[in-house]
Write a protein that binds this DNA or RNA. Structure first.
Lengths: 120, 120
DNA sequence: CTATGAACATGATGTTCATGA
DNA sequence: TCATGAACATCATGTTCATAG
């Protein structure tokens, strides 16, 4: 039995990455910009290294795989980027992972409610 | 503007300590037992060093002061314990601190709700 | 300059060791 | 043994450096 306080940011970032990969083919810094925009109103501004570490973990866990692409088909230059997609069984694995994190988020939510109730 | 994810455990522990000091004269390990019991259903089990560090911080911040007592007036032995009480302006300072943490907890709560909404 | 990543540094928290009564 | 505390270790995250185009 673990001993955990609230959900860790890494888990939340991985959650969003999974969801974003489901819908689009984005690369690292795009994820970063998107998440920063999403969380700006909440005062949370993830760092680029957290995004990359999360992508690496998801890859290591066999959920995503990497492909390299050249950005901007046309004149935009030849910047190489790394695209992530689900592996064969990645989608299933992702579902399992999401379920775990959902439970942890629910737990955290209840805990915060309790803390507020106990102290205010 | 900081860059914070969810509320830190240290802040929450200090919140509870303030509230407990308001009501009782407890010492370190009693706080620990109490908090462990409170949070057991949530899978969170604080450590003794976190409690002591929190008490030390509250003392350094001028909110609490320490007095030494002997435990168990009677035959219980002569175990020395450290009791914490509010300083002269400690209660006021504590109110300010609590207000800050409440804001942070509200922010965290909204953030968790957003995360759940976005991903499930 | 953008994108990716590793290396390095700091922060937050946990575990172990020391001391006194 | 219980209580307190410091020292030490590890985890979580952030900042800086390196490399490629």
């Amino acid at each position: 039995m673990p001993n955990r306080f609230l959900t860790k940011q890494r888990a939340v970032i991985k959650l969003y990455l999974i969801n974003l990969v489901e819908q689009n083919k984005l690369y690292g810094l795009q994820f970063l910009q998107l998440l920063r925009k999403e969380f700006e109103p909440y005062g949370f501004r993830p760092t680029h290294s957290e995004i990359y570490k999360s992508l690496h973990e998801l890859t290591k866990e066999g959920i995503l795989y990497r492909t390299k692409k050249l950005k901007g088909e046309g004149q935009d230059g030849f910047q190489e980027i790394v695209i992530y997609q689900f592996t064969e069984d990645g989608y299933e694995k992702a579902k399992t992972y999401k379920k775990m994190v959902k439970q942890d988020l629910d737990r955290s939510k209840h805990m915060i409610n309790k803390i507020l109730k106990d102290n205010f």
